[in-house]
């Protein structure tokens, strides 16, 4: 299934809207759109504490609610493309509900062209023992604005493997909120962002452990070049009663120029007992010994640096569950690397 949106409006003509067996689609447009949206959330309380998410809700005019029936493994990924042309504003809305024991892969691509703006909200409810793979890939034009929020809740025994990859965009702000609501709920979060030129990428993540034996492993990597700026604020909250929680948060950043900057703030707040938690962040530059090793084999200096940058990114990208997607994303990053300003130069 492929659903293509342009500036927030579904384009059925270029989409393939026949869902796989056991999957149903509801379009969130017209007079019934809001009702359908609220129904799809089933009163799941989504506190709109975020101005842009509230604006998104107010502007709701189109979108999709997808549901995977109990016990169903959806064949093939559900692929959503959010495009937007220059000078356009898109309010994208997506709801995915996985019924108990079901599983699916959702790929959401955000790609604004020119000076477009997108404000996307994605709500995902993983019911008991369901399995989700969610891949968000943002590869917008260098002038595009992207603001996005994903709210993902996991009930007992549900597992979610989440990817957030931001390669383009003038200004990108992404909020990922994962709530581990049921006992044994588990998530792996993989993030990668790249900011070069004068681009700005801001990732805010928050994981709430609200039940016993919940597990979270979060790994973000950032790369900044030119006068690019990256922000990573990752917060993990282990609430009272979420005993035996297991949480790991790692962030590693690579700076390729003197002016590039990445600010990182990994945070753990723990109010439960007998938990296993670790977090750490590092920021560094390309290793001169590795560059020399590659050059000593006949690899040109620029190519050596590109190889090392791709290798750094591959730690995240390589976790993608689809091999062709790994190559695709490595290629997308690679196509952005020739523009590297003063990559690898010692500070």
């Amino acid at each position: 299934m492929v659903a293509v949106f342009d500036a927030g409006t579904l384009l059925p003509a270029v989409s393939r809207l026949t869902p796989p067996d056991g999957v149903t689609l509801h379009r969130l447009d017209g007079a019934q759109g809001r009702l359908a949206w609220e129904a799809s959330l089933e009163g799941d309380s989504r506190e709109n504490d975020n101005a842009l998410a509230s604006l998104n809700a107010a502007m709701l005019s189109d979108g999709l609610a997808i549901e995977v029936a109990a016990g169903v493994t959806a064949t093939g990924p559900l692929f959503i493309i959010h495009g937007s042309g220059p000078e356009r504003m898109a309010h994208n809305r997506l709801v995915l509900r996985l019924r108990p024991g079901s599983s699916c892969t959702l790929i959401e691509q955000q790609a604004g062209t020119g000076a477009s703006a997108a404000n996307s909200v994605t709500d995902i409810i993983c019911e008991r023992d369901s399995r989700l793979t969610y891949i968000r890939l943002q590869d917008g034009a260098d002038a595009a604005f992207h603001v996005a929020m994903q709210r993902i809740s996991l009930q007992a025994g549900a597992e979610a493997s989440l990817f957030g990859i931001d390669l383009g965009g003038q200004l990108t702000r992404n909020d990922l909120r994962v709530s581990l609501d049921g006992p044994g709920a588990s998530t792996d979060i993989h993030g990668l962002f790249f900011a070069d030129g004068r681009r700005h990428v801001d990732n805010q993540t928050r994981v709430d452990h609200r039940a016993v034996r919940t597990r979270c492993s979060e790994h973000f990597r950032g790369i900044a070049d030119g006068a690019g700026r990256g922000i990573f604020n990752g917060k993990i909250l282990v609430h009272r009663g979420a005993d035996k929680a297991d949480a790991v948060l790692r962030n590693e950043n690579l700076l390729l120029s003197r002016q590039a900057e990445i600010d990182t703030k990994p945070e753990l707040e723990i109010y439960a007992d007998d938990v296993k938690c670790a977090h750490g962040a590092t920021t560094g530059r390309l290793d001169p010994a590795s560059i020399f090793y590659l050059r000593s084999r006949g690899i040109g200096a620029d190519e050596a640096r590109r190889m090392l940058i791709a290798a750094f990114a591959r730690e995240i990208i390589g976790q993608l569950p689809v091999d062709s997607l790994v190559d695709h994303v490595v290629g997308l990053l690679g196509s952005r690397l020739p523009d590297l300003a003063d990559v690898g130069t010692a500070p």
Binding site: Y293, S296, I299
Partner: peptide
């Protein structure tokens, strides 16, 4: 360094570096 290698010089390192991902 790369020109030297292409001209046919090879260095076997005393301490070869590990380059994960390449």
């Amino acid at each position: 360094p790369e020109e030297r290698a292409r001209e046919g010089l090879f260095l076997g390192f005393q301490y070869p570096v590990e380059i994960p991902g390449v």
